[in-house]
Write a protein that binds this DNA or RNA. Structure first.
Ligand SMILES: [Mn+2]
Ligand SMILES: [Mn+2]
Ligand SMILES: [Zn+2]
Ligand SMILES: [Zn+2]
Lengths: 145, 145
DNA sequence: AAATAAATGAGACTTATTCTCATTTACTGT
DNA sequence: ACAGTAAATGAGAATAAGTCTCATTTATTT
Protein backbone atom coordinates (compact mmCIF):
# COMPACT_ATOMS: atom_id res chain seq x y z
CA UNK A 1 0.00 0.00 0.00
CA UNK A 2 2.88 2.30 0.71
CA UNK A 3 4.24 1.28 -2.68
CA UNK A 4 0.93 2.13 -4.36
CA UNK A 5 1.12 5.55 -2.76
CA UNK A 6 4.69 6.15 -3.93
CA UNK A 7 3.75 5.01 -7.41
CA UNK A 8 0.78 7.36 -7.57
CA UNK A 9 2.95 10.28 -6.55
CA UNK A 10 5.80 9.57 -8.92
CA UNK A 11 3.44 8.92 -11.82
CA UNK A 12 2.14 12.44 -11.33
CA UNK A 13 5.59 13.98 -10.83
CA UNK A 14 4.78 15.03 -7.33
CA UNK A 15 7.57 14.77 -4.81
CA UNK A 16 7.36 11.83 -2.48
CA UNK A 17 7.01 13.02 1.08
CA UNK A 18 5.89 11.37 4.26
CA UNK A 19 2.66 13.33 4.73
CA UNK A 20 1.61 12.62 1.16
CA UNK A 21 2.27 8.92 1.56
CA UNK A 22 0.35 8.81 4.83
CA UNK A 23 -2.66 10.59 3.39
CA UNK A 24 -2.72 8.40 0.30
CA UNK A 25 -2.38 5.27 2.40
CA UNK A 26 -5.29 6.31 4.59
CA UNK A 27 -7.45 7.02 1.56
CA UNK A 28 -6.46 3.77 -0.17
CA UNK A 29 -7.02 1.73 2.94
CA UNK A 30 -10.44 3.19 3.65
CA UNK A 31 -11.39 2.71 0.02
CA UNK A 32 -14.61 4.71 0.23
CA UNK A 33 -15.55 8.35 0.26
CA UNK A 34 -14.47 9.75 3.62
CA UNK A 35 -15.08 12.96 5.50
CA UNK A 36 -12.09 15.10 6.36
CA UNK A 37 -12.91 14.60 10.01
CA UNK A 38 -12.73 10.84 9.66
CA UNK A 39 -9.56 11.15 7.62
CA UNK A 40 -7.98 13.27 10.33
CA UNK A 41 -8.80 10.73 12.96
CA UNK A 42 -7.39 7.89 10.86
CA UNK A 43 -4.19 9.91 10.62
CA UNK A 44 -4.05 10.26 14.40
CA UNK A 45 -2.12 13.50 14.31
CA UNK A 46 0.66 12.07 12.14
CA UNK A 47 0.12 14.91 9.67
CA UNK A 48 -0.35 18.53 10.68
CA UNK A 49 -3.74 19.99 9.96
CA UNK A 50 -2.30 22.61 7.62
CA UNK A 51 -0.33 19.95 5.79
CA UNK A 52 -3.35 17.69 5.43
CA UNK A 53 -5.26 20.42 3.64
CA UNK A 54 -2.24 21.18 1.49
CA UNK A 55 -1.84 17.55 0.52
CA UNK A 56 -5.51 17.29 -0.36
CA UNK A 57 -5.14 20.34 -2.56
CA UNK A 58 -2.11 18.79 -4.22
CA UNK A 59 -4.12 15.68 -4.98
CA UNK A 60 -6.94 17.76 -6.39
CA UNK A 61 -4.49 19.63 -8.56
CA UNK A 62 -3.26 16.42 -10.15
CA UNK A 63 -6.87 15.34 -10.55
CA UNK A 64 -6.80 12.21 -8.45
CA UNK A 65 -8.99 13.51 -5.67
CA UNK A 66 -12.67 14.27 -5.83
CA UNK A 67 -14.20 16.54 -3.21
CA UNK A 68 -17.80 17.27 -2.44
CA UNK A 69 -20.08 18.46 0.32
CA UNK A 70 -22.47 16.10 2.04
CA UNK A 71 -25.99 17.15 3.02
CA UNK A 72 -24.87 17.79 6.59
CA UNK A 73 -22.23 20.15 5.15
CA UNK A 74 -19.19 18.07 5.89
CA UNK A 75 -16.51 17.87 3.26
CA UNK A 76 -16.04 14.44 1.73
CA UNK A 77 -13.08 13.31 -0.37
CA UNK A 78 -12.34 10.23 -2.41
CA UNK A 79 -9.47 9.06 -4.56
CA UNK A 80 -10.06 8.74 -8.27
CA UNK A 81 -8.33 5.52 -9.22
CA UNK A 82 -7.81 4.28 -12.78
CA UNK A 83 -9.98 1.21 -12.36
CA UNK A 84 -12.59 3.29 -10.59
CA UNK A 85 -15.01 4.32 -13.28
CA UNK A 86 -17.52 7.11 -13.52
CA UNK A 87 -20.04 6.87 -10.70
CA UNK A 88 -22.37 8.82 -8.45
CA UNK A 89 -23.26 9.05 -4.76
CA UNK A 90 -25.90 8.06 -2.30
CA UNK A 91 -26.06 9.86 1.04
CA UNK A 92 -27.69 8.77 4.26
CA UNK A 93 -29.22 11.89 5.78
CA UNK A 94 -29.18 10.27 9.18
CA UNK A 95 -25.72 8.81 9.75
CA UNK A 96 -23.85 10.69 7.03
CA UNK A 97 -22.63 7.61 5.21
CA UNK A 98 -21.66 8.14 1.57
CA UNK A 99 -21.93 5.25 -0.86
CA UNK A 100 -20.57 4.91 -4.39
CA UNK A 101 -23.26 4.12 -6.93
CA UNK A 102 -22.90 3.10 -10.54
CA UNK A 103 -25.85 3.84 -12.75
CA UNK A 104 -26.64 1.97 -15.93
CA UNK A 105 -24.97 2.76 -19.22
CA UNK A 106 -28.33 3.50 -20.79
CA UNK A 107 -28.99 6.04 -18.10
CA UNK A 108 -25.65 7.75 -18.59
CA UNK A 109 -26.22 7.84 -22.33
CA UNK A 110 -29.57 9.47 -21.85
CA UNK A 111 -28.10 11.94 -19.38
CA UNK A 112 -25.45 12.87 -21.91
CA UNK A 113 -28.17 13.62 -24.44
CA UNK A 114 -29.87 15.87 -21.93
CA UNK A 115 -26.57 17.57 -21.31
CA UNK A 116 -26.18 18.16 -25.05
CA UNK A 117 -29.50 19.97 -25.06
CA UNK A 118 -28.65 22.05 -22.04
CA UNK A 119 -25.31 23.05 -23.57
CA UNK A 120 -27.06 24.34 -26.66
CA UNK A 121 -29.87 26.02 -24.82
CA UNK A 122 -27.63 27.96 -22.44
CA UNK A 123 -24.56 28.29 -24.62
CA UNK A 124 -22.47 26.46 -22.08
CA UNK A 125 -19.61 24.09 -22.34
CA UNK A 126 -20.47 21.41 -19.82
CA UNK A 127 -17.49 19.45 -18.60
CA UNK A 128 -18.84 17.42 -15.75
CA UNK A 129 -21.97 16.29 -14.00
CA UNK A 130 -23.10 14.73 -10.78
CA UNK A 131 -26.09 12.71 -9.68
CA UNK A 132 -26.73 12.68 -5.96
CA UNK A 133 -29.34 10.66 -4.14
CA UNK A 134 -30.45 11.31 -0.57
CA UNK A 135 -32.28 9.12 1.88
CA UNK A 136 -32.05 6.87 4.87
CA UNK A 137 -30.25 3.59 5.20
CA UNK A 138 -32.89 1.34 6.67
CA UNK A 139 -30.91 -1.44 8.26
CA UNK A 140 -27.47 -3.02 8.54
CA UNK A 141 -25.97 0.42 9.09
CA UNK A 142 -23.67 0.42 12.07
CA UNK A 143 -23.99 4.16 12.58
CA UNK A 144 -27.75 4.63 12.33
CA UNK A 145 -29.10 2.88 15.40
CA UNK B 1 -44.16 41.87 -4.22
CA UNK B 2 -44.42 42.82 -0.59
CA UNK B 3 -47.92 41.37 -0.74
CA UNK B 4 -46.60 38.10 -2.20
CA UNK B 5 -44.18 37.93 0.69
CA UNK B 6 -46.86 38.52 3.30
CA UNK B 7 -49.04 35.93 1.65
CA UNK B 8 -46.28 33.33 1.67
CA UNK B 9 -45.66 33.91 5.35
CA UNK B 10 -49.28 33.82 6.42
CA UNK B 11 -49.98 30.75 4.30
CA UNK B 12 -47.32 28.97 6.29
CA UNK B 13 -48.44 30.36 9.65
CA UNK B 14 -45.21 32.18 10.17
CA UNK B 15 -45.42 35.56 11.81
CA UNK B 16 -45.05 38.50 9.48
CA UNK B 17 -41.99 40.50 10.38
CA UNK B 18 -39.95 43.06 8.56
CA UNK B 19 -36.79 40.99 8.13
CA UNK B 20 -38.79 38.09 6.76
CA UNK B 21 -40.56 40.31 4.28
CA UNK B 22 -37.30 41.90 3.18
CA UNK B 23 -35.59 38.56 2.64
CA UNK B 24 -38.55 37.14 0.72
CA UNK B 25 -38.79 40.25 -1.41
CA UNK B 26 -35.11 40.04 -2.27
CA UNK B 27 -35.43 36.39 -3.21
CA UNK B 28 -38.59 36.97 -5.24
CA UNK B 29 -37.14 39.94 -7.02
CA UNK B 30 -33.93 38.17 -7.95
CA UNK B 31 -35.94 35.19 -9.10
CA UNK B 32 -32.92 32.91 -9.51
CA UNK B 33 -30.70 30.90 -7.24
CA UNK B 34 -28.55 33.38 -5.31
CA UNK B 35 -25.52 33.11 -3.08
CA UNK B 36 -25.84 34.27 0.51
CA UNK B 37 -23.18 36.87 -0.22
CA UNK B 38 -25.21 38.32 -3.06
CA UNK B 39 -28.34 38.17 -0.95
CA UNK B 40 -26.61 40.05 1.83
CA UNK B 41 -25.52 42.78 -0.53
CA UNK B 42 -29.02 43.09 -1.99
CA UNK B 43 -30.25 43.59 1.56
CA UNK B 44 -27.72 46.37 2.10
CA UNK B 45 -27.53 45.83 5.83
CA UNK B 46 -31.29 46.14 6.33
CA UNK B 47 -31.29 42.78 8.08
CA UNK B 48 -28.72 41.72 10.67
CA UNK B 49 -26.47 38.85 9.70
CA UNK B 50 -27.76 36.67 12.52
CA UNK B 51 -31.33 37.44 11.54
CA UNK B 52 -30.69 36.68 7.90
CA UNK B 53 -29.47 33.20 8.78
CA UNK B 54 -32.39 32.73 11.13
CA UNK B 55 -34.88 33.75 8.46
CA UNK B 56 -33.29 31.41 5.95
CA UNK B 57 -33.61 28.60 8.47
CA UNK B 58 -37.23 29.50 9.03
CA UNK B 59 -37.88 29.28 5.31
CA UNK B 60 -36.12 25.94 5.12
CA UNK B 61 -38.22 24.69 8.00
CA UNK B 62 -41.45 25.47 6.15
CA UNK B 63 -39.94 23.87 3.06
CA UNK B 64 -40.01 26.84 0.75
CA UNK B 65 -36.26 27.32 0.56
CA UNK B 66 -33.76 25.09 -1.13
CA UNK B 67 -30.09 25.35 -0.19
CA UNK B 68 -27.02 23.88 -1.82
CA UNK B 69 -23.31 24.40 -2.20
CA UNK B 70 -21.80 25.59 -5.45
CA UNK B 71 -18.51 24.22 -6.79
CA UNK B 72 -16.62 27.20 -5.38
CA UNK B 73 -18.10 26.32 -1.99
CA UNK B 74 -20.44 29.23 -1.65
CA UNK B 75 -23.89 28.58 -0.26
CA UNK B 76 -26.70 29.13 -2.71
CA UNK B 77 -30.39 29.44 -1.86
CA UNK B 78 -33.55 29.60 -3.91
CA UNK B 79 -37.22 29.87 -3.18
CA UNK B 80 -39.42 26.90 -3.98
CA UNK B 81 -42.53 28.41 -5.48
CA UNK B 82 -45.71 26.50 -6.30
CA UNK B 83 -45.46 27.05 -10.04
CA UNK B 84 -41.77 26.21 -9.91
CA UNK B 85 -41.55 22.52 -10.68
CA UNK B 86 -38.87 19.93 -10.09
CA UNK B 87 -35.62 20.99 -11.72
CA UNK B 88 -31.85 20.79 -11.56
CA UNK B 89 -28.86 23.10 -11.77
CA UNK B 90 -26.12 24.18 -14.08
CA UNK B 91 -23.06 25.90 -12.61
CA UNK B 92 -20.49 28.09 -14.32
CA UNK B 93 -17.15 27.18 -12.78
CA UNK B 94 -15.75 30.51 -13.85
CA UNK B 95 -18.21 33.20 -12.77
CA UNK B 96 -20.22 31.18 -10.27
CA UNK B 97 -23.55 31.68 -12.00
CA UNK B 98 -26.22 29.10 -11.15
CA UNK B 99 -28.94 28.36 -13.68
CA UNK B 100 -32.18 26.44 -13.26
CA UNK B 101 -32.52 23.56 -15.68
CA UNK B 102 -35.52 21.37 -16.41
CA UNK B 103 -34.74 17.98 -17.80
CA UNK B 104 -37.13 15.96 -19.90
CA UNK B 105 -39.88 13.88 -18.39
CA UNK B 106 -38.46 10.76 -20.01
CA UNK B 107 -35.16 11.43 -18.33
CA UNK B 108 -36.75 11.88 -14.92
CA UNK B 109 -38.72 8.69 -15.40
CA UNK B 110 -35.58 6.80 -16.22
CA UNK B 111 -33.77 8.33 -13.28
CA UNK B 112 -36.58 7.21 -11.00
CA UNK B 113 -36.13 3.67 -12.26
CA UNK B 114 -32.44 3.85 -11.49
CA UNK B 115 -33.31 5.12 -8.04
CA UNK B 116 -35.62 2.16 -7.53
CA UNK B 117 -32.73 -0.17 -8.24
CA UNK B 118 -30.38 1.66 -5.95
CA UNK B 119 -32.93 1.59 -3.15
CA UNK B 120 -33.20 -2.16 -3.41
CA UNK B 121 -29.50 -2.77 -3.80
CA UNK B 122 -28.49 -0.72 -0.77
CA UNK B 123 -31.60 -1.12 1.32
CA UNK B 124 -32.15 2.59 1.36
CA UNK B 125 -35.19 4.73 1.34
CA UNK B 126 -34.33 7.45 -1.15
CA UNK B 127 -36.30 10.63 -0.68
CA UNK B 128 -34.62 13.09 -2.98
CA UNK B 129 -32.13 13.45 -5.78
CA UNK B 130 -30.13 16.09 -7.53
CA UNK B 131 -28.54 16.40 -10.94
CA UNK B 132 -25.81 18.99 -11.20
CA UNK B 133 -23.96 20.03 -14.32
CA UNK B 134 -20.71 21.99 -14.34
CA UNK B 135 -19.04 23.95 -17.08
CA UNK B 136 -18.31 27.34 -18.53
CA UNK B 137 -20.72 29.87 -19.91
CA UNK B 138 -19.19 30.72 -23.25
CA UNK B 139 -20.68 34.08 -24.07
CA UNK B 140 -23.33 36.58 -23.08
CA UNK B 141 -22.32 36.22 -19.45
CA UNK B 142 -21.84 39.59 -17.83
CA UNK B 143 -19.58 38.22 -15.14
CA UNK B 144 -17.22 36.04 -17.14
CA UNK B 145 -15.27 38.52 -19.18
C1' DA C 1 -53.94 49.27 25.20
C1' DA C 2 -51.65 45.58 28.02
C1' DA C 3 -49.76 41.10 28.28
C1' DT C 4 -46.93 37.52 26.39
C1' DA C 5 -44.34 34.99 23.45
C1' DA C 6 -41.63 35.37 19.53
C1' DA C 7 -38.28 37.77 16.79
C1' DT C 8 -34.46 40.88 16.36
C1' DG C 9 -29.72 43.27 16.55
C1' DA C 10 -25.23 43.48 18.07
C1' DG C 11 -21.58 41.32 18.84
C1' DA C 12 -19.25 37.27 21.01
C1' DC C 13 -18.23 32.62 19.85
C1' DT C 14 -17.16 28.38 17.18
C1' DT C 15 -14.80 25.98 13.86
C1' DA C 16 -13.27 24.69 9.02
C1' DT C 17 -9.92 26.28 6.09
C1' DT C 18 -6.08 29.29 4.79
C1' DC C 19 -1.97 31.75 5.70
C1' DT C 20 2.74 32.94 7.64
C1' DC C 21 7.20 31.96 8.58
C1' DA C 22 10.92 29.58 10.65
C1' DT C 23 12.69 24.87 10.09
C1' DT C 24 13.09 20.50 7.73
C1' DT C 25 13.08 17.58 3.81
C1' DA C 26 13.41 15.94 -0.99
C1' DC C 27 15.55 16.27 -5.27
C1' DT C 28 19.61 17.60 -8.49
C1' DG C 29 24.19 17.59 -9.92
C1' DT C 30 28.70 16.80 -8.47
C1' DA D 1 27.80 10.34 -0.23
C1' DC D 2 27.41 15.62 -0.16
C1' DA D 3 26.24 20.34 -0.75
C1' DG D 4 23.01 23.47 -2.64
C1' DT D 5 18.34 24.88 -3.62
C1' DA D 6 13.66 24.77 -4.01
C1' DA D 7 9.83 22.69 -2.17
C1' DA D 8 7.28 20.90 1.77
C1' DT D 9 6.20 20.89 6.60
C1' DG D 10 4.59 22.09 11.49
C1' DA D 11 2.86 25.19 14.68
C1' DG D 12 0.01 28.35 15.42
C1' DA D 13 -2.08 32.89 13.94
C1' DA D 14 -5.59 34.72 10.87
C1' DT D 15 -9.96 34.56 8.31
C1' DA D 16 -14.67 34.03 7.67
C1' DA D 17 -19.25 31.41 7.48
C1' DG D 18 -22.45 30.27 10.47
C1' DT D 19 -24.29 29.93 15.37
C1' DC D 20 -25.29 31.54 19.91
C1' DT D 21 -26.39 34.82 23.82
C1' DC D 22 -28.95 38.15 25.81
C1' DA D 23 -30.94 42.59 26.32
C1' DT D 24 -34.43 45.08 23.60
C1' DT D 25 -38.14 45.40 20.23
C1' DT D 26 -42.09 43.70 17.79
C1' DA D 27 -46.14 40.88 16.49
C1' DT D 28 -50.09 38.73 18.02
C1' DT D 29 -53.84 37.79 21.22
C1' DT D 30 -57.07 39.41 24.53
MN1 LIG E 1 -17.37 7.99 -5.11
MN1 LIG F 1 -33.20 26.09 -8.92
ZN1 LIG G 1 -27.42 5.72 7.93
ZN1 LIG H 1 -19.74 32.37 -16.34
Amino acid sequence: MIEDSRKILSEHSVSITNPRILVLEALLEFGNPITIDELQSKLKGAVAKSTLYRVLNDLKKIKILNEFTSPDNSTVVELILEDHSHHHHLFCSDCGEVIDVELSEEFETMLNKEIENVQKKFNFEITDHRVEMFGLCTEECSNCK
